[in-house]
Each structure stands twice: as structure tokens, then as C-alpha cells.
Amino acid sequence: MFSRSVAGVAALLCMGFAIPASAQYADLDRADWKEDTVPPPPAYSVSGLIDIEMPRASSVRMGIDPKTITLNSDTGIVRYVVVARGPSAVNAMYEGIRCATGEYRVYARQVQGGEWSPASDSEWKSMRGQVTYPHPYRLARDGICLGATANSVPEEMIRALRSPKGTLYD
């Protein structure tokens, strides 16, 4: 009887410690949430990109530079540089994903290695149903997010993004 009680208390304590980690970003959709000051776009490299599986055939390949992935644990925002490589151009975007609300934001764009330009459409938008920018949803689904929370650390995100994916159904 005593050992079951101790085991029950131990299980509750373990759950108590696990809850804050799993619910860490659960309240970030509240009205008083504020985004932190956005750091400048990090330097990136086109070598070592992790390809992003896209829903339709295209001559443009998308990839994320794993060295640019950062997580702000206070806001729950994951920021990164994604690179679009086509037959005649290589362009980059500095973006953020907010797993708690299923949203993404483009902070800046860079055309052919030029200067970064602030994005004119830089508000938070839903990742679902995006036709123009389907890659944030793919990134979130494939390793940036674990449901409504950000994956624990960038190294875990990178590991998950590098893992083989199944067939696309959406």
C-alpha cells in the first residue's frame, strides 16, 4: 500500500515537472503577448541546406540553413533563414514560426546575395492553406514544432528536419 502511494506521488511529481515543459507556449496566443525585438538576419550558407519537401513539382528548390535556426524560449518564436534556389536565382528569406498559434512571419528578403530588405508583408499569418509560401507549414510539421510547442532545442529541430519523411498526403 505504502509503495503504491509513493509511486503515485512520484508519478504526480514527474507529471508536474513535465507539464511546464510541454505547456511552455500554450498561453502565447493571449492578447497581451508581445514579440521580442527581432535580431538582424544571420549569415547563412547555401552549402549544407536541409531540403524542404514541397507539395508540387517546381524548378525552385527550398532549403533551410540549420546554422541559422534559433529559438527564443521567452516568446516561443523559432527564427531561421530559408533559401530558394532556382535555375537563374538564389534568394533568401529571414522568417519566424510561432508554433503556439500556427503562424509564420517573413522579416526580410534578400535577392541574389544583395542587401537584406525588410519584408513589406511582415505580419503574422496562418501557415495552413498557404499557396505562395507553403514551406513554413512543412518546416513546422517536419521538426520545428511539436504540435503547439516549439521543439525543445534547435539541435532537435535539425535532427527531425533531417529525418526521412513519409509520402506527402496534403
Rank of each mutant, 00 (worst) to 15 (best):
V6W: 04
P66L: 10
V111P: 00
T37Q: 10
P136F: 03
R141G: 08
P20Y: 12
V6S: 01
S120F: 03
N72R: 06
V106E: 03
S88M: 13
E53P: 09
T68Q: 06
S88C: 00
L139I: 07
S73D: 13
N151M: 15
F2L: 13
E123H: 14
M62L: 04
N91K: 02
A100D: 02
G147R: 09
I52S: 07
P154H: 13
L13F: 11
V9P: 00
A119T: 03
L146K: 12
E123T: 10
R4D: 07
A10I: 05
A89Y: 15
K125N: 00
G76N: 02
Q24M: 15
M54S: 08
M1E: 13
P40I: 08
L168E: 11
R162W: 02
T167N: 09
V6D: 02
V6K: 05
V111L: 10
V81N: 05
V106R: 03
F17K: 06
S126R: 04
L146E: 14
A21I: 15
M157H: 03
M93L: 09
E155C: 01
C99S: 08
N72K: 04
H135T: 08
Y107N: 00
R141Y: 07
S58G: 03
C14A: 15
R30P: 00
D74L: 12
A31E: 14
P154M: 08
K165E: 02
V6E: 04
S88N: 09
V131Q: 04
W116Y: 11
D51T: 05
Y133F: 12
C99K: 06
S120N: 07
I97F: 05
L161K: 06
R105P: 00
S47Q: 15
Q112A: 15
M93F: 06
R138V: 09
Q112K: 14
G114F: 03
A148E: 11
D29N: 10
R105A: 01
T75P: 01
P134N: 12
P164L: 10
A160R: 13
G8I: 14
W33R: 15
E95M: 08
I158H: 07
A108N: 04
E155W: 03
A100I: 03
A92N: 02
I97S: 01
S88A: 13
N91H: 04
D27L: 12
V131Y: 02
R105N: 05
H135P: 03
R105S: 00
V6G: 01
G114T: 02
